[in-house]
Design a protein around this nucleic acid. Structure first.
Length: 935
DNA sequence: GCTCTGCAAAGAGGA
């Protein structure tokens, strides 16, 4: 039994006499049903009364196991001995953040603000954890060590370590664990499982437990601890996992893996721990200190085991929840911790210097004190606003987590966030100890792609047996399948779905796993830009000085013949002291110009970082660079992210440390997505110039991730095309590209000659988005016709498609985000083009909604590309058919941003057909003008 | 009410 509601009133703590003596209490009013219900009174008893200083009206509060009493006909609640009070349960606090917070709240704050730099103890710690997991999965120790050390080759090289030295270090730590494991296995039957991802709805916690042994959380620490007790913060961490395991209610349901890697069975008995008394929590936790070797006996006990068990009582769990509450309340309020919240002693703290410097630069109150002078107020203001926007974005990610338990499987499948009702085809353990799970492929659409990290479960991602998994194969998409059917004439099955996990699961469902990765990186990037950025750079970013140019560096030189704007773009980039902004509308040779710029900079001896938001954009830019004869390139990225033909440049992180470092440092061009620019490896590099493509699609923090690493930068993009993708509506939705192009027109250039669209097609876009400045590069482009294509006859087209730009109204009806009648008509239109001689590959269909895309895909002839606007950006077709779906009116946010329409219309070279409802399109001036132009 | 790409995450330590 729980009470949950929005806090409407917080009373003053007061002391009352009870039969147990004087006790403090705090009265609150909660409005159930998300604030819509009638207020109920809840009395908090010690120690929950401390919440008085943490909570505000408007916050969401949950009280478990309350006592209920009637009071003048009104039901009142109060906390019982068993109760937990949870502030903002939907705010998912990381377990490691709770660990940091109990050491010192500012340590938690600084940890989120500053990225962990590359250092040996951390890399070694990670290696020992990986080897530990392998041991539990039955892998040979030496083999595991060799494998993981090799995997860390690049990082170890950057740290100046040799593989042998590190392997020795890791072996020393891992042996202690191995010995201890073998002792346990001799005595009794052990029930182990390795790393487990836990997401808790009730306590608003998430984290990854190193291991679970007979239901007890086990944490591995690669340090030494000769005291009798585990370190306090380590106990807190283990207790968090105990809370989560209790909530999952499956202490007895760990999958049994024998330590020798033998026969494995997934125990599936239903859990019985969720009894009338509510969940039960593990009452013990285990800490493994791997540096406690046989020689180091405990000072107090003489014990020589690396393992320390400790008791987890109800009171300790409640303490841990209170700490979690403080974090959630601080985050929701947007407060900056001072360090006074706890009794931490600054003089012993490793972070003391950082803490004081940050406090000094940002003029924050800090228990440790401040060093240095504050940065200008406008910069602090910028940080405050950006932090708030990023935290808002974080809340949106948390809402995605909440959907894991709020939505039914069917709802999630409809939302494209899950593949459900999969048919398991088996599981087998790979040589490295991890598991490969297989299920029958499905036609269902989802956001899940190969290479993604997902939750694999036997039915429910948080209530059933679930594992964090990586998608290896997703079977064939329905389109590919259909083409296989037509060519062989018989029905073929979609390929299997294959994922890898740490432990086996009956693979019945896959869920999108929301990640705070991007928001975490944004936070550290913005912080770096303000606190570590040079004065020169910040003067430009904060509008205190115009960007400077040294024209003598390119005097009398021509870089690109017969295109003055492109030539000017290269000239600006080459002569820039600070930055250059290049706006490249559709088809204007933006990528060519970018590659020419990179080549010129490299020829002048510069080291260049080439970046963009998407892997596709990075690889496109690289392709253009290779086409111009430059291939001294290193591509940083995941194997599944990098396009096949660019894999030859991909930097492997595995191998000999010195060789890997030499490869990274040797190349004049390093290419990576902006997300990868935030990685420890790329962060350890520096560049003369950063060139960022598709910069109009990047948030300011995203752009800064690349820009921070170089002395100068060039942003290439178009703010009249798609804006950044963010979940929340705030400062993050405007790109740095747009801000700078508006602020510094003299540092900018517009590529105004386009090589793609016929005059007729480009007209609307040019008028609406580029003040009429966008023009065809020459008469050949302007006069492009379908007739010019071999085998194509315009005369063969039906009259309504006879013009290069046409409009067709199929009189359909919007049903949700689809319009089946319109989809039928789109198919007919496409068929007409094919009948007129166009190759399927030359025709593209664009729709605003993914639902309509799949509706059309089902009908479209083989080989015709059908996709959303967003996914069509950057490519083109001879003919584009655009399905607008809406009927009656243009209700919906997707129609509000006209830039999306700009992208859709400008994919076409010679033919464009608008398929939609006349009435809907006439309902809004912009679309009205579009309609007039099209018919 | 939409569009959607990136990312393993958690990893050490002292008086």
């Amino acid at each position: 039994m729980t009470v949950r509601g929005v806090v409407s009133e917080v009373g003053e703590p007061k002391t009352v006499s009870t039969r147990y003596g004087d006790r403090e209490l705090l009265e609150l009013s909660l409005r159930p049903d998300g604030g819509r219900g009638d207020p109920v009174t809840v009395t908090l008893w010690p120690k929950w009364t401390e919440l008085a200083e943490w909570i505000d009206p408007g916050m969401d509060l949950l009280v478990t196991d309350p006592e209920e009493e009637e009071w003048n006909g009104e039901t009142r609640y109060s906390t019982s001995k068993e109760s937990f009070v949870v502030v903002e349960p939907s705010y998912l606090v990381n377990v490691t953040d709770v660990r940091a917070w109990v050491q010192c709240p500012r340590m938690y704050y600084l940890g989120n603000l500053t990225a962990t730099p590359l250092n040996y103890p951390v890399v070694k710690g990670t290696l020992v954890h990986e080897v530990f997991g392998d041991l539990l999965r039955g892998r040979d120790l030496d083999e595991a060590i060799e494998d993981h050390v090799a995997d860390a080759g690049l990082e170890l090289g950057l740290l100046g370590r040799t593989a042998d030295e590190v392997a020795g270090d890791v072996r020393e730590n891992a042996r202690a664990v191995e010995n201890w494991l073998s002792q346990g296995a001799l005595g009794q039957e052990d029930d182990w499982r390795s790393e487990r991802t836990l997401i808790g709805e009730r306590f608003g916690l998430k984290g990854r437990a190193d291991a679970i042994r007979r239901g007890v959380p086990v944490e591995l620490k690669t340090g030494k601890n000769l005291k009798k007790e585990p370190r306090f913060q380590d106990k807190v961490q283990a207790a968090c996992y105990a809370l989560l395991l209790g909530e999952y209610g499956d202490e007895g349901r760990t999958t049994g893996v024998a330590a020798d890697g033998g026969e494995t069975t997934a125990a599936t008995e239903p859990s019985e721990s969720e009894s009338d008394d509510g969940p039960t929590y593990p009452d013990t936790g285990t800490l493994l200190y791997t540096k406690n070797s046989v020689l180091d006996r405990h000072e107090e006990t003489g014990d020589l085991s690396p393992a320390k068990d400790f008791t987890i009582g109800r009171g300790f769990l409640q303490y841990v929840v209170r700490q979690r509450n403080q974090i959630a309340a601080t985050a929701v309020r947007g407060d900056v911790p001072t360090g006074y919240e706890s009794g931490a002693k600054c003089e012993y703290c490793f972070e003391q210097d950082t803490c004081m410097v940050v406090a000094g630069r940002l003029d924050e109150e800090s228990k440790a004190g401040q060093i240095g002078t504050p940065v200008p107020e406008e910069e602090r203001e910028y940080l405050r606003e950006t932090f708030a926007a990023i935290e808002e974005e974080r809340r949106s990610v948390h809402r995605e987590y909440a959907k894991l338990w709020e939505q039914t499987a069917e709802e999630r499948a409809d939302d494209d966030r899950a593949l459900i009702d999969l048919e398991p085809l088996g599981q087998h353990q790979r040589e490295d100890g991890r598991w490969e799970l297989r299920a029958k492929g499905t036609d269902a659409v989802s956001k899940i792609r190969e290479g993604d990290v997902v939750l694999a479960s036997d039915g429910h991602p948080t209530r059933g047996v679930a594992e964090l998994a990586r998608v290896v194969e997703l079977g064939r998409s329905s389109a590919e399948q259909r083409s296989a059917e037509t060519s062989t004439g018989e029905r073929s099955d979609p390929g299997d779905i294959v994922v890898t996990t740490d432990e086996p699961v009956d693979l019945r469902r896959l869920d999108v796993y929301p990640s705070e990765f991007t928001v975490d990186r944004m936070l550290t990037t913005v912080h770096d830009a303000v606190l570590k950025g040079s004065q020169d750079r910040k003067d430009v970013l904060f509008g205190r000085r115009d960007p400077a140019f040294d024209e003598s560096r390119a005097a009398g030189e021509t870089f690109i013949d017969n295109n003055a704007a492109q030539d000017e773009a290269v000239r600006l980039a080459v002569t820039a002291e600070d930055c250059t902004i290049v706006q490249g509308p559709p088809g204007t040779g933006k990528t060519y110009t970018l590659a020419r710029t990179v080549r010129e900079l490299v020829d002048r001896g510069e080291r260049v970082l080439l970046s963009a938001f998407t892997n596709r954009a990075v690889d496109n830019a690289l392709e253009a660079l290779v086409d111009q004869g430059h291939d001294d390139i290193v591509r940083v990225g995941t194997e599944s992210g990098v396009r096949d033909d660019m894999l030859r440049f991909r930097l492997s992180k595995r191998g000999d440390p010195d060789e890997r470092v030499a490869e990274l440092n040797g190349a004049s061009v390093v290419a990576a997505t902006t997300a990868s620019c935030g990685s420890r490896i790329v962060q350890s590099l520096d560049f003369d110039t950063a060139v960022v493509d598709e910069a109009g699609q990047l948030t300011e923090p995203g752009t800064l991730a690349a820009v921070n690493l170089a002395d100068r930068f060039v942003l290439v993009g178009d703010h009249q095309q798609l804006p950044p993708v963010v979940r929340s509506e705030n400062e993050l939705s405007q790109s740095l590209f747009q801000r700078l192009i508006e602020e510094y027109p003299d540092a900018s250039v517009l590529l105004d000659r386009q090589y793609r669209m016929s005059q007729r097609i480009q007209w609307f876009s040019s008028q609406e988005f580029y003040d009429g400045q966008l023009r065809p590069a020459g008469p050949d482009v302007a006069g492009r016709r379908l007739d010019d294509l071999p085998g194509v006859s315009e005369d063969a087209l039906p009259p309504e498609l006879a013009n290069p730009v046409s409009f067709v109204d199929p009189s359909g009806h919007r049903e949700g985000n689809t319009n089946p009648v319109e989809a039928d008509r789109v198919r007919e239109v496409v068929q007409s083009y094919l009948d007129a001689g166009l190759a399927p590959d030359d025709v593209g269909v664009i729709a605003p909604f993914r639902a309509q895309v799949s509706e059309i895909q089902r009908r479209a002839p083989e080989g015709v590309a059908v996709d959303t606007v967003d996914r069509f950006q950057g490519s083109d077709k001879e003919v584009i058919v655009l399905s607008t779906v809406a009927t009656g009116d243009l209700d919906g946010p997707i129609f509000e941003d006209h830039r999306r329409m700009n992208v859709a219309l400008t994919r076409a070279k010679r033919g464009l057909c608008l398929v939609g409802d006349e009435r809907a399109l006439s309902s809004e001036p912009f679309y009205g003008r579009l309609l007039e132009w099209a018919r």
